[in-house]
């Protein structure tokens, strides 16, 4: 009940009519007899960050991988910029939960991997990679190997790799779950400025309620068995008050509480 109130309030304040960058239409995904996703539809507004939030097993990563083109949906389809998705494409880049950095390649080579696969010449791709390594704050680590970096630094490499291919849509699969709390907060702040500065659409999977509310323009709550979108929340009033004030904003706290009260029944 309380949930729908907020939902109502926020949508009123934030009636956006920006087009969708990504549109998920009637997606179902079955693994044998197991129904992972059922008839799911969702719009992802251009230039904004949408979180997929839900308890484990709710299919949020499955949905993200379907959008990425890494998994085939059983039925339904995904459109990116109005074009049907039939596999991975240059319009999307993925940030992995476990970083997926090649341990035998230097930071520079890891960041340049996506460009290399697109056939960009070595000197050019290294120049681009160096620029993005600098922009994520890893200048000086170009020739280090992943195992020489901390978890947070590794994910910065993963982020630089995704940014360097200049895709419209950034797909992030619990990107901060494997880094420590302080690093995660720094990441979240950086992510906010990234969303503001880059004209990209972000789709962000997380299981942390606070994280979702903190970074998102739009939060899709997914509930499990079978997975469905239970509601969409668009926080608005605290986004412009500055990163330091978000966590004590009353709307922020209300949304966090309300999401928790609707999810708690699904936690074993």
């Amino acid at each position: 009940m309380a949930m729908s109130q907020i939902n109502h309030k926020t949508t009123e304040k934030n009636s956006t009519d920006i087009g969708s960058a990504v549109s998920v239409q009637n997606i179902s995904k079955n693994y044998g007899d197991v129904e992972a996703l059922r008839d799911m539809s969702l719009e992802f507004p251009r230039g904004q960050l949408t979180s997929l939030l839900g308890p484990s097993g709710c299919g949020k990563t499955t949905l993200l991988k379907i959008i990425a083109g890494l998994l085939e949906p059983t039925s339904g389809h995904v459109e990116v910029n109005g074009i049907n998705v039939s596999g991975p494409g240059p319009d999307r880049a993925f940030v992995f939960q476990d970083f997926a950095l090649l341990p035998w390649a230097t930071v520079l080579k890891n960041v340049a991997f996506g460009l290399q696969m697109r056939g960009v010449a070595a000197s050019e791709r290294e120049a681009i990679a160096e620029r993005y390594i600098k922009s994520v704050g890893l200048a000086g680590f170009e020739n280090s190997y992943p195992h020489e970096l901390s978890g947070g630094m590794r994910q910065r490499v993963g982020l630089a790799r995704a940014l360097s291919v200049d895709a419209d849509v950034l797909l992030m699969d619990e990107p901060f779950s494997a880094v420590d709390e302080q690093t995660r907060r720094k990441f979240q702040e950086d992510l906010l400025s990234l969303v503001r500065d880059e004209n990209k659409t972000f789709i962000f999977v997380t299981h942390s309620i606070e994280e979702a509310v903190y970074v998102s323009d739009q939060i899709a709550i997914l509930l499990p068995r079978p997975s469905r979108v239970s509601e969409i929340i668009r926080p608005s009033s605290f986004r412009n008050k500055g990163v330091d004030n978000i966590r004590r904003d009353s709307e922020y706290l209300d949304i966090v509480d309300n999401i928790w009260s609707s999810l708690r029944t699904y936690v074993e």
Binding site: G69, R92, Q97, A100, L102, F113, M117
Partner: peptide
């Protein structure tokens, strides 16, 4: 995840 990474970056 290595293989998925390769695929998603169009290898």
């Amino acid at each position: 995840s290595f293989k998925e990474m390769g695929k998603s970056f169009l290898a």
